[in-house]
Simulated scan of single mutants.
Amino acid sequence: MSLKSSLRGTGVAIVTPFNEDHSIDFEALGKVIDFQIDGGIEYLVTLGTTGETPTISKEEQIQIIEYTYERVGGRVPVVVGIGGNNTLAVVEMLKTFPLQKATAILSAAPYYSKPSQEGIFQHYKALAEASPKPILLYNVPHRTGKNIDAETVIRLAKEVKNIGGIKEACGNFTQFAHILRDVPEDFLVTSGEDDIAIPQIAMGMQGVITVAGNAFPKEVSTMVRLALDGKFKEATSINNKILDVFTLLFNENNPAGIKAFLFEKGLIKNELRLPVVPLSSPNHQKIKEFLRNYIA
């Protein structure tokens, strides 16, 4: 089964909850996972960058993967985030992490190094050859410092067997159109940008991997299903209700914004690992006010 069919709809890049001593709060993680599935999302993404993976040890990452499989219990597909700018280290993780129950691997483009397009191609080719599961590219240049150009995405899609799709978050609609036009028919193209997911779906993307869905799984997944069914007026109506959420999430950084929402909903403690810190009081207050006035 191609990723285009198995990962159609809404995937949530879930947070990693922490206790006050910054150990992993597995009880809260279980609550978050159940909240997503009960809210109607199609799949989960664990250990994405929203999960603060740069601050989580390999041993902890393995524990989180195994716990996620156990808690999900086959109810929805699980995508595992594994990435970095040391290709050999990522390859080693792909060979040694417990990935048997994963549907795919989400891997962000190498950050900071700013490799050439050929370097990006060779990086993903090495990952695809090592991975026991299909690779989902993740293009987020405002964080990594380097765009995966449309031509590179299309080349990877056509030439590398184990590359199954892309989470696209470059913000460039011309690039989206290029990719959607030229990739193979069974190649998954999904949004990585909550605020423009509806027009991206209108262009032909198959859904979204969302941050906002952590706190609003029912709203986001319903909105995406409506958009995929061509019911854009109804989808936009839901989008308008949560439009301010997209700003509140990223006022300071991710995942401080979404963790504040989840804290106010009673799902997690408002704890993050340095260098990320909780939202400032004024921005946290804005989230409290939004939730106080929100009518589901």
Rank of each mutant, 00 (worst) to 15 (best):
I179G: 10
T50H: 10
E59D: 10
N251Y: 06
G81W: 03
H22M: 02
E193M: 08
F97Q: 11
P134L: 06
V32H: 00
S221Q: 07
R71H: 05
P132Y: 04
Y111M: 11
L136Y: 14
T68L: 07
V208P: 01
L7E: 07
L44N: 15
A296V: 11
I24N: 14
T190M: 15
S116H: 10
F250C: 06
S57L: 06
S280R: 05
I268G: 08
G207M: 05
F263S: 11
I64S: 01
Q63L: 00
V224L: 15
A102V: 03
P275M: 07
P184V: 06
L99C: 00
K114H: 01
E151M: 05
I62M: 07
L267K: 01
L226G: 04
A89H: 11
N253V: 13
L127Y: 02
L180P: 05
S107W: 03
Q122T: 05
N283Q: 05
N293A: 15
L272M: 12
L228E: 03
L3D: 04
R155K: 03
V79Y: 02
K265F: 05
L137Y: 01
N293Q: 15
S116Q: 10
V140G: 01
I287Q: 04
V32E: 00
I135V: 10
S131P: 04
K218N: 07
A256W: 00
Q285E: 09
L99S: 01
F246V: 07
I120P: 12
G192Q: 03
D21R: 00
I166W: 09
A197Y: 08
A108P: 14
G119T: 01
N239F: 15
L267C: 02
K218V: 02
S2F: 10
T174K: 14
G40C: 13
S23H: 11
G30V: 10
S280T: 06
L99K: 01
V90D: 12
H142S: 11
